[in-house]
Nucleic acid binder design. Structure first.
Lengths: 167, 167
DNA sequence: CCCTAATAAGTTGCGCACGACTTAATCGCG
DNA sequence: CGCGATTAAGTCGTGCGCAACTTATTAGGG
């Protein structure tokens, strides 16, 4: 644990009001290392890279893994709802889902009650893959090496940031 | 998705379990929403999306903007050192730098003292662009809507995570 | 009932990201 | 000095990620 000040970040809602608030200090810098956005971008790619060998063993890319997580959680979801869950456009999902279908993990079937909608259904192979994937979150939790408190704080801040920025 | 018309959300500090939902199993879970990696992935894309209109005005993509930040900080850097700073491979940077050169922002010159190395030098247009970019970090700091404490905590945690995972 | 608007999924084009590989220059050891 | 190993940059192929657009289907007001 080499990080002081990484504890709970928003205990007693001591956040100043934001109506016309002055710019926070360091936000005006053009220095690469000062920018939260760069820390975020670098961390995201580093974590994805760490997943790669684990997912290679399952013959999945990282976005494909996220799709499988969503389907293991709720089978027979529509492309639309999947896009909402992952915050991805159909132009990203359509080719990706085609590849998962070609790899035999799912089928795409037009819904009878609304021919515009496509339901995604796991195949037996897709269901079975879940067992082999069970170890992945644990291994990644290990690799990321954050305490439960740091993990929770990070998730909270990232979700807050996403919500703010999505307006 | 969240409350309309309001500024950045404040978010509940202690996220309780959703009512009626199964307990958040946290680390070994296969649930999408439990995973730090997904929060990270979603946040990174959301932030980049928020940059897009600002950077469109400068005719830059987000990775191109990061390259320009690095060059404004230290001109005449080598492709190698730039790759170290941004944690990007030459196979990513080479085409990107070609586009920046084609757009007249920099020149690539082989170093006389080591013909393997290529130095990146800002053109006048590249230097001038810095003035127009001054407002970007401020606007983004505003949009991200984190307190200075939250911003600092997020950066710390992300850098710790990157370091752990890059091992 | 029609006709326009909306919605869902998909296609296309472009720019990353990265692994695997290539080319060319420098290093360093015998 | 010679020459294999290392290093720097780049090419190529694949898979996202997203804007702009297309196609097909459904919804809904007059």
């Amino acid at each position: 644990m080499s990080t002081p000040g990484a504890g709970p970040a928003q205990e007693d809602a001591a956040l100043p009001a934001r109506e016309g608030s002055p710019p926070p200090t360091q936000h005006g810098s053009l220095l690469l290392e000062d920018q939260l956005c760069f820390a975020l971008y670098a961390a995201s790619r580093a974590v994805t890279a760490r997943y790669r060998p684990l997912l290679d063993a399952l013959d999945l890319t990282y976005p494909q893994y996220l799709v499988m997580l969503a389907l293991w959680e709720q089978d027979s979801i529509s492309v639309r709802d999947l896009g909402t869950a992952l915050q991805l456009e159909s132009s990203t999902l359509s080719p990706l889902l085609k590849r998962l279908e070609a790899n035999g993990l799912l089928r795409r079937e037009r819904r009878a009650e609304d021919e515009r909608s496509v339901a995604l259904r796991l195949t037996d192979a897709g269901v079975r893959l879940r067992d082999r994937a069970e170890t992945v979150p644990l291994a990644m939790g290990e690799a990321m090496g954050l305490t439960p408190e740091q993990d929770a704080t990070a998730k909270q801040l990232l979700r807050l940031l996403t919500a703010n920025v999505t307006r």
